[in-house]
Design a protein around this nucleic acid. Sequence first.
DNA 1: TAGTTTAATGACCCGCCAGTCATTAAACTA
DNA 2: TAGTTTAATGACTGGCGGGTCATTAAACTA
Lengths: 210, 210
Amino acid sequence: MVSVTPPRKRRKEARPSELTAAALGLFVEKGFAATRLEEVALRAGVSKGTLYLYFDSKEALFKAVIQEGIVPVVAEGEAIAASHDGSAFDLLERLLANWWTRIGETDFAGIPKLMVAEARNFPEVAQFYYENVIKRGRALVGAALERGMASGEFRRMDVETCIEVVIAPVLMLLIWRYSMGSCQGKQVDPAQYLALHMDLLRQGLQRTRV
Amino acid sequence: MVSVTPPRKRRKEARPSELTAAALGLFVEKGFAATRLEEVALRAGVSKGTLYLYFDSKEALFKAVIQEGIVPVVAEGEAIAASHDGSAFDLLERLLANWWTRIGETDFAGIPKLMVAEARNFPEVAQFYYENVIKRGRALVGAALERGMASGEFRRMDVETCIEVVIAPVLMLLIWRYSMGSCQGKQVDPAQYLALHMDLLRQGLQRTRV
DNA sequence: TAGTTTAATGACCCGCCAGTCATTAAACTA
DNA sequence: TAGTTTAATGACTGGCGGGTCATTAAACTA
């Protein structure tokens, strides 16, 4: 058994995304504070020194993870909303479906819990996330709700508050998975959970018959 | 200006709860990892050494915070459910109201976010919280839902899944307040948020007229 | 009041890990 | 091929904070 040091490779282009991918996995698994940069580097197949070639600090790495992870998905949602011409409820369902396939079923699913856990310690990153993800995501849901209320499909309610209530269960599903999820034996089935949420909403939002 | 060292006081009985109260505040503010024990001791008006007189380790302190903070409230909910004889929906509203006055409006409101953030790092504490708070809380909501379904007040749905969806917005409200909450100017009004949630639920859960 | 108990102290220790930098070698150039 | 550039390395450091313990003094006792 001879210990071999794998040969160095110079791959300037590929490093940053490999490092953020490794960092995402570890941050989501263990939290920001408990993640050691040496471990991130190891998982990315690189030394700790190399990490500092591409990111100024642990916080900079964190910000990059958030930025490249989730922001692109918001734009997709905006495109869907812009081109949609069915019912308002259909739009809500399409937005949810897109969110689910692009976030919920990928490694990015851990980001909401990560942001929630670290928001207070990294106000700058939190602000960035708020402006680029939360605000825009809410606007999407809000527009769908307003469309439904305008057309008479939904009853009239306070839109801002309604947005929160609609989004909350979707976020909780992900947050749960990455926190207490491991405590219970049988996990909730995400598809069933989301279906029931939308089912409650369909009936809860609709204008009552006169 | 003479620096005075305040006189020592021996207050064996009062220390533990003063320490857990101080710790709760700081854990909730800055997270578990970012909270220094010296700071906890300072806030409790005591030295770091004294803290170790009452708690074996930082983790033990954490567990004590959770234990004495929220567990007692669950029993109250159970008493309410046992004595209730109105409609199932009324019971849900009473449980929510109690939760709100006993948790939502107190310092304990920060515990859900704290647990969510730290569950992975402290599986033992998470397990304790799961068994003593979450399971029992869910059972309460589940019983109310089943009562409503049995009486024909609610339509039939999968109870386990429904519990999650009903609870999620209530938890998110608190989690939000202690994480991203500081990013936005105007906060959601909790009363309005909870009222809208219950309003959506009232209509969403009810059996549709035949 | 002298003697005993033990709550409280705070200086200290030590392991951990973010961040540094002198050195190495891969890839490119003339 | 010799020379240059710069990606990559990993040993090292500084300080931070969890945890310890010898010392101090408050409260109690005879």
